[in-house]
Amino acid sequence: MNIIELTMAEIASLFLMPVLVILAVMFAYAFYELGRFGFEWLMRAMGRKKEQPLNRFWAKNPQADQQEVELQLLRQLEPLRLVSRIAPMLGLVATMIPMGPALMAVAGGDFQGVANQLTIAFAAVIIALLAASMTFMTLSVRRRWLLEELKALVKAKAVQRPAKSELTAA
């Protein structure tokens, strides 16, 4: 291997530990969000409308218009969307980095080294896919809930506030 190839291999290996740490954080976040999702599902099943996030936002910000509430909806969904999309990519990165040393170990006959590297690679991709799956499921259902909630809020606010045509007609 020439100097460029060695340098690139060394740079790539530097990213393994940070990627594994980020994947561990994403996995913990996915479990946290899954717990929040379960609690929110329970509150919705019990009919506790006050527990709905957009209702709380609009109660705290009565001057907010529909666009501000939609922006709040996007803010709530963004972390879930990011984790569900980024985790698989980082899982692939964490899978590919140990493959180089594993192949080198095969060439050297070090089958214990191969096993160690492949364990890291497969564990990383499994953790990443689990984190992505949990957050994607939570994102999908929560998006529907929030859009239903937004629709109901807009409808309720339209009834409470007179339409512009009613104001100009008076």
Rank of each mutant, 00 (worst) to 15 (best):
F136E: 13
E166G: 05
V19L: 05
A30G: 06
L80H: 01
L77C: 00
S13K: 14
S13W: 14
L74K: 13
M96L: 15
M99K: 11
Q66Y: 15
M1K: 05
A105T: 03
R36Y: 06
A107T: 03
E68K: 09
E33N: 08
Q160D: 08
E70R: 10
E51R: 09
K164A: 12
T135N: 14
E148T: 12
A64D: 05
R143F: 06
R36L: 14
I86A: 07
L73S: 00
E40W: 07
A131Y: 03
N55S: 05
Q66C: 10
A132Q: 06
M17Q: 10
A28E: 05
L74W: 12
A105I: 14
I126L: 14
A30M: 03
F37V: 08
I126R: 12
K60G: 07
L54K: 00
E78Q: 13
A107P: 02
R48W: 08
M26Y: 06
Q52R: 13
V125C: 00
A163E: 13
A30T: 07
F57P: 00
L146A: 03
K157N: 06
Y32I: 14
L150H: 03
Q160E: 13
G91K: 00
M104S: 15
W41C: 10
L71R: 11
L82V: 15
E68H: 04
D65S: 15
E33S: 05
L153M: 10
M26D: 00
I22W: 01
V69Q: 07
V69R: 03
P162R: 07
Q160H: 03
E166A: 15
V159E: 08
T168M: 09
L153S: 01
T138D: 03
E78W: 12
M104G: 08
A9E: 11
V69S: 02
V21K: 08
G91F: 01
Q67G: 04
T138L: 03
W145Q: 10
A123D: 14
A28M: 05
F15C: 11
F27C: 06
G47F: 09
K155M: 13
E5F: 14
P88W: 02
G100Q: 11
G91T: 04
Q160P: 01
M43S: 10
I3S: 09
L118C: 02
A28N: 09
A152S: 10
M96V: 15
E78L: 13
M89F: 14
M134G: 02
I97K: 01
F39Q: 12
F57A: 00
